[in-house]
């Protein structure tokens, strides 16, 4: 088990390094220096100073080493379009809103999705089942900007359609701002989880050990909770990773549409502004988030599935 965690951590470090390297070289070999474009009319000496400040006067491999060193120290660079603004500050300020939105929608998505999937499986070929299948297929077919637009149109009178609570407001006071974006974000997750859970429960119900448990006289609640759900939840854990990724990208659009001061909105803004250092910093941060959550999911898997603890590998 310990070796397994160590191995996973090793992979995580390698993957992060690959991401950082790719991001760095992609952003730095782009034709047209971002500063060059903005500073075209400045006198050469000032231009030189600015280039020096951002380190653009050094060769690329040197810049790469410096960038890595700075990253290790937690310094992710400074904005180009807003000089003096540290990437770290932006992330610290903007991430809480995104994190809240993300966590809420993962939570809502999981709970509703699993419940729907279980309901559908236990009521196979009834209207409940067909309804859940319908919702599941609709959920993966409708882009989340359409869902967001529909929510704004039809539930806009009940909940605020744009904005976010101030930082000092309590968790509960800000809740009303999160309702619509959370639904918009979690809709796809609900659909995916419901679909997978339904198949998975149907698989498990027909296993021999369920029959054994029933014939031993285990009460129905026990069979459902201990035997069926525990086994059926395993495939769900494997799709948690991709789902987290879809939530991260979902926040780009949802934050943009609901004017939420989160990191996703900032990311899209910095892409539009061609603010290269900020794109790099946020990319690396998002990648880190994603890779870390994959690690957590994998470790969770070992907790839920005892078979992995022995072999150290996924089935």
């Amino acid at each position: 088990m310990f070796r397994y965690i160590l191995k996973r951590l090793g992979y995580m470090v390698i993957t992060m390094w690959v991401v950082i390297t790719i991001t760095f070289f992609l952003m730095n070999t782009l034709p047209g220096n971002p500063i060059e474009v903005e500073m075209r009319k400045l006198p050469p000496q000032i231009k030189k100073n600015i280039m020096h400040q951002y380190g653009f006067d050094r060769p690329i491999h040197e810049r790469y080493v410096i960038y890595l060193q700075n990253l290790l120290k937690g310094d992710m660079g400074e904005s180009i379009s807003t000089p003096g603004l540290k990437a770290r500050t932006v992330i610290a300020e903007r991430f809480p809103a995104s994190a809240r939105l993300g966590l809420q929608s993962v939570f809502i998505g999981l709970i509703i999705g699993l419940v729907l999937g279980i309901l559908a499986a236990f009521n196979r070929n009834t209207w409940i089942d067909y309804l859940v299948i319908g919702v599941a297929i609709l959920g993966v077919s409708v882009p989340n900007f359409v869902i967001a637009a529909l929510l704004q149109q039809f539930l806009g009178g009940i909940f605020p359609v744009i904005g976010w609570a101030s930082k000092k407001a309590s968790w509960f006071a800000g809740l009303k701002y999160t309702v619509l974006p959370t639904i918009a974000l979690s809709f796809t997750s609900i659909a995916t989880y419901a679909r997978y859970m339904r198949t998975s429960v149907l698989d498990v119900i027909n296993q021999d050990y369920i029959l054994t448990a029933k014939s031993k006289g285990v009460p129905a609640v026990g069979v459902v909770c201990k035997h069926i759900l525990r086994n059926a939840i395993l495939p769900i854990v494997t799709i948690l990773g991709p789902q987290i990724a879809s939530i991260i990208t979902g926040t780009f659009i949802v934050e943009m549409m609901f004017s939420i001061p989160g990191l996703g909105q900032y990311y899209v803004e910095s892409i539009t502004n061609r603010d290269y250092t900020m794109i790099m910093a946020t990319t690396i941060f998002f990648a880190f988030l994603f890779i870390a959550s994959l690690l957590v999911v994998d470790l969770l898997y070992t907790v839920i599935d005892p078979r992995i603890r022995i072999t150290g590998e996924k089935r």
């Binding site: 993957t15 690959v18 790719i22 990724a245 991260i248 990208t249 990319t283 990648a287 994603f290």
Partner: peptide
């Protein structure tokens, strides 16, 4: 390694 890099990014 490629899979654990977020696709959209």
């Amino acid at each position: 390694i490629i899979v654990s890099i977020p696709y959209m990014i």
